[in-house]
Amino acid sequence: MATLEVKNLCKDFHVREGGNRRILNAVQDVSFELVPGGTVALVGQSGSGKSTVARMIAHLERPTSGQVLLDGAPAPTRGRGVHKYRSQVQMVFQDPFASLNPFHSVGHHLERPLRLHGVATSKADVHAHVIELLERVQLSPGRDFLARRPHELSGGQRQRVAIARALAPQPSVLIADEPVSMLDVSIRLGVLNLLARLQREEDLAVLYITHDLATARHFSDRIMVMYQGEVVEDGAPDDVILRPQADFTKRLAAAAPEPARNERMIAAASRYAKDTTNDR
């Protein structure tokens, strides 16, 4: 099982605004470590750079500076090495409606990574693996899903297919970029529990990117809060949420809906309503 280490990762984008160019520091000096069986949550608002971190780890963006180390060795940047790196590090994308090609069947989405990474080679072997993957993400019977196209599946089912695809190369590190933010609230927990179970079974190192502090607290061993490209808070989940240090984290924690406070507000509102009707 592999450990992924991120060291002083930075990413600058060149932005053109009208005539003048300026540099946007999307990610500044981010460092952390993903260990087998452990989950690190990366929390932040839109545009805070958390997805850029994920893309750099998944080799979709090149870091401006800093390093990604897999088992102590720098991640290769070209050639066969990248392919090998990808069989270890996989990613689940945010939007299950966009991450599956509308043109291809569910079977195709799972067969390709199996073949590309040599997990299975013969036709029967690939078929058996695809069925097994589908059933592991609770799409059973798997045979029924093989020929279906993404538009025939619900959001939750699609995200399960996307998770199965990420697991196909048998990786040891999984990047989950807001895996449930596009799903109905009612099925979020199911998908998150599935991810947690798969993590236990495979001893995966998981980077869980989210903007939801509650699920981050529930599912991770460590929370990092990003704000405008920088990590502003880093620590054990309970410390970060109950005793936030940075200004941004305090605001984030305060913004989370709190059932007790809501009840007080409802009570106050109904008292107010009663008073005004009595006045009339």
Partner: peptide
């Protein structure tokens, strides 16, 4: 995302 995902798949 499906194009990015196929790149990640190798």
């Amino acid at each position: 995302e499906y194009v990015l995902a196929s790149r990640v798949a190798g």
